[in-house]
């Protein structure tokens, strides 16, 4: 366990979402990459999820893609906070996102014990269909263009291509 050094000082490193932007210059392009660290807290997560989705909307993603990203992001954040960090307030969640009109790339990393994707049972199998958990990963993988796991399962990198941007709406 890596929480032996955790104390209140560690908690102080958490700042409101947005302060860890790699581009501190607000005049920079809206499409620049952003890194944020938040505590294992659903309220803080909600805030950063909103920021990312706002950016996805501004980059012109279609309704279907917005729905997909919202869902996958929700699942990734819950996995990190609840299953990864087990709601431990001394542990953080590190989020990196880079949203352009072409694609949204989101990486979520927790400080938990990690997991092996191959050991997660198929929730659609008849013997598992009545079980209450195990669907988050399935939904992330179904709705995103690509999903990769790293750092022994502590990190998930998801990409959603904006397929609709090839046909922009013509406005007068």
């Amino acid at each position: 366990m890596s929480i032996s050094g955790a104390n209140n000082d560690d908690r102080r490193k958490h700042r409101p979402a947005g302060e860890h932007r790699s581009s501190s210059d607000s005049a920079r392009s809206d499409s620049s990459p952003v890194r944020v660290t938040i505590p294992s807290d659903f309220g803080a997560s909600r805030e950063i999820q909103k920021q990312i989705i706002d950016r996805v909307v501004r980059c012109g993603f279609g309704d279907q893609a917005i729905f997909a990203i919202k869902l996958a992001l929700e699942e990734a954040m819950i996995n990190a906070i609840k299953h990864g960090n087990k709601l431990d307030p001394a542990k953080s969640v590190h989020i990196a996102y880079h949203v352009t009109p072409q694609q949204a790339e989101i990486t979520v990393e927790d400080e938990g014990g990690g997991f092996d994707r191959h050991c997660v049972p198929d929730p659609t199998a008849d013997e598992n269909i009545e079980k209450c958990s195990g669907r988050g990963i399935l939904l992330m993988e179904a709705y995103m263009t690509s999903v990769e796991y790293g750092a022994n399962g502590r990190r998930v990198k998801m990409i959603k291509k904006n397929e609709e941007q090839a046909t922009p709406h013509l406005s007068s």
Binding site: K70, E75, C132, R135
Partner: peptide, 16 residues
């Protein structure tokens, strides 16, 4: 308009 896997888990629980 939106639900998560946690909501699905709750619905399965209700169904049971």
């Amino acid at each position: 308009d939106h639900l998560s896997s946690a909501a699905l888990g709750m619905l399965i629980n209700i169904n049971n």
